[in-house]
Each structure stands twice: as C-alpha cells, then as structure tokens.
Amino acid sequence: MTKPADTGMTEASAPVILGQNSGPLSRAISRLRGHSFAVANLLMAPTMLWLLLFLALPLGVILVYSFGSRGTYGDVIYGFAFDNYLRAFSPIWLPVILRSFLFAGIATALTLAMGYPLAYFIAIYGGRRKSIYLILVMVPFWTSYLIRTYSWIVILRSQGVVNTILQWANIIDNPLDLLNTPFSVILGLTYGFLPFMTLPLYASLEKLDKSLIEAAWDLGASRIWALLTVTIPLSIPGIIAGTLLVFIPAVGDFVTPDLLGGPDTLMIGNVIQQQFLSARDWAYGSALSFSLMAILLIGIFLYVRKVGTENLA
C-alpha cells in the first residue's frame, strides 16, 4: 500500500525521494543512506530521550505506586501488594467501565461518520483551498479544550442558545433537559475529538491513487460500489489511526463528563482523577490507570489484528 502517489505529491516531493539528478542534495542523501543505521539512531535519539524521560519514567513511577498503599495522610507507602489491583477489578466499577467504553464507542462512530465525508471532500474536491479547509478543521485547537467545553454549557443549558431558539420558534413550551445527560457527554466527546478523526483520514485519502477509483468506474463499478470496494479499503490505515486517536483518549476523558455530565454519567477517568485528588489514594489511582491501560492495550491489539496490521504500514 505504500507505493508513491502519482498525483499532486509527485512534483513537490520528487527531488527528495528520487535520486535521478546528481545535485549536491541527492549526493548527500545517497551518502547518508550508506550509514542509514547510524543516521537512524542519531535521528531517533532526541525522541527516545524524550519518551524515556516523560513517558517511560513517569509510567514506571506509577507502576511502583500501584503496588503500594495509602498512608495516613494520603501519602504513598511503598510495598508490594496486589490489593489495589483486586480493588480496581471490583464489580462496582464494571458499569462505569462499560459506560466509558459505550460513550467513547458512540463518539468514535459519530466522528467517523462525520469525519469521513469531510476528509473525503477536502482530499478529493479541496483543490487549491485544501489548506484553508485543513486550517478550519484545526482552528478549534487554538482555544483551550476547557473553554470550548464550557461554551457547550452555554449552548445546552435551559436558558441556553438551543432552548431559547426552540422556544422562540414555538417548537417546545418548556426547555429541554439537554445538559447533564448522556447525550451532552457524547456530544462533547464527539465535538472535541472530531479533528483527531478527520486529519488522519485526510492524510490517508489524500495520498490515495485516484486513478484506481477511475479504473473501477471504467470497469463498470457504480459510484457506491467503487467507494465501498476501492476507496474505503484503501483508506483503512486512516480509519484505524483515526478511531484509535479518538477512542483511547475518549475512554479516559474526565473533563467532558465532569462538566457536561449528570449524576449518572461517571466515567472511569473521573474515578481515577478522584483517587489522585480528593481521595488522595495515589496507589489505588495508579492501579486503576494501569488496569485501564492493560484493557485498552489488549483491545487495540485485537482490533488492529482484526482489521489488518499490514494496512497500517
């Protein structure tokens, strides 16, 4: 699936990927290729160092915490016990975990349903306005997620934008309870993560070889059939990347359910946050985090295996 795209990209990237002309750049590149292993290591070093310091090390700390216990005043007492993991898998959290997966799953499906046509439109019909459309997709990131979620409160509350308009148009008599419901939480998640779906889908559709679609049409496939049998299968890497980028953070999100949720929309992210802050039981919170990570890793493994790892390349 990785053969070079023949349209659009070629002119821009030709001098870099092809070593045909013997300019100084291509000579430098071929010299680098000779030492590819050392160069690769050199290029990876900053990232590896970063990941070690800010990912592996903190995770290690949390792992150590997770086998400890809560001290009298909420400090962590180090030890080696599995109590926290036993508590983490206690049946009281089952509905909370199922709810987290359900909300995140629905949000992922909705972002896919909205993001795919959007990415398709930008990639295929964007023309010279492509970059403007892409910037528009990313514009929300310029505002804090917290502020954007707060603004949904203003839109959804009983005297909010939606209810005011509906009442003004005489469609409803009494304000609808939109806020603090599962609906508002899923809406918040969908809104917040839509760009994470759109961008990888766009990247995938943009490098898609359009002549393959034309070939399908020429060979008598209907538009829908060509979409289903050519376009979508070719964009599977984008779909996998998008769904993972949306689903994983959505499962663990605590800001959205905290702000837009009601008494019955507790998600696992809220539970973990509570352990670290108000309950001050870092050991238990760490065990909950690791358990969630384990569940997610197994899920991702099965998912990627099912949809096909080779498509990710």
């Binding site: 909420g74 959290w93 909370v96 309950a279 039981d281």
Partner: peptide, 20 residues
C-alpha cells in the same frame, strides 16, 4: 477534621455512591 486512615471509610462510601 482530618480523619487520617479512617478517611478511607468515606472514600470507599463515596465511590460506591458515585458508581451506584
């Protein structure tokens, strides 16, 4: 008042309340 180790009683009860 800070209840020290007995804070756990409230933490657990609150979790059960919120998860119920």
């Amino acid at each position: 008042e800070e209840l020290g180790a007995d804070t756990e009683l409230y933490n657990t009860a609150y979790q059960e309340l919120r998860a119920s």
